[in-house]
Write a protein that binds this DNA or RNA. Structure first.
Lengths: 118, 118
DNA sequence: CTCCGTTACTTCGGACTCGACAGTACAAGT
DNA sequence: ACTTGTACTGTCGAGTCCGAAGTAACGGAG
């Protein structure tokens, strides 16, 4: 109740206040998968990150789940995946531009969640 | 298993950077359920909201899913539920203080998602 | 007295998702 | 020859989620 000067008179520059939040098919479904949001922020925090680094960061995640979540995020264009022709193999994940923007918007949520959850 | 040995070759310029985002059990699991984030923002947008109003706002959500999601959010303390002894029944949902804070932090994400998804 | 309309939920069965564990490919080191 | 290290992939069973249809309650219409 800080600033309700807006009334509900529907200013024309806000074409979608409520209606928008309900049709979010792709992105919200993606973010609703397990570890998706944390993953974005973790990769954002440790920069180009190898698979093993990411796996170690989470305490309890199976490799199959982590792998498919990474694939999801790469497919959706929020993470980039660079594979080097080395043995043992090396793969680095990093945020794309869209991923960085997403990370920025996720940050306040996760910070608050971290404070609140512990 | 070694524990709490900070021999990572990382600069300690981040107080609570990576480790925090991975232990988020409760809240992130809750928000990862379908429609949970949208629900918070919708209730925040239309104020005290009746069940039917919420249902109408979403185009495709089954009543069972909506009902359990509302229960989840009420149990977690982000929504309040007020039931009136009338026929036909009337129930109103609203954000609690924690819910409002959550909504505030969800806002930038959902706005961006709405722009991007359409 | 019987049927209908309204509202806020349940119930049910199928679909999807997750985690544990094991296995793969490849080369360098011992 | 055998172990080590990395980044996965496969399989299976358990758990979770979702949507369509049904339920309960009462006032009002006929």
């Amino acid at each position: 109740m800080t600033e309700a000067t807006d009334d509900r008179s529907e200013p024309s520059d806000s074409p979608c206040d409520v209606d928008c939040y309900c049709q979010l098919n792709g992105l919200m479904d993606l973010l609703s998968r397990r570890y998706a949001m944390q993953l974005i922020c973790v990769v954002g925090a440790i920069g180009p990150a190898r698979y093993g680094e990411i796996e170690d960061t989470f305490e309890s995640v199976s490799s199959s789940t982590l792998s498919s979540r990474l694939d999801d995020l790469v497919d959706a264009g929020y993470l980039s995946r660079e594979q080097y022709a080395e043995i043992p193999p090396r793969v680095e994940y990093d945020l794309t531009d869209a991923g960085e923007e997403l990370c920025r918007r996720l940050q306040p949520l996760l910070e608050w969640a971290a404070d609140r959850d512990v």
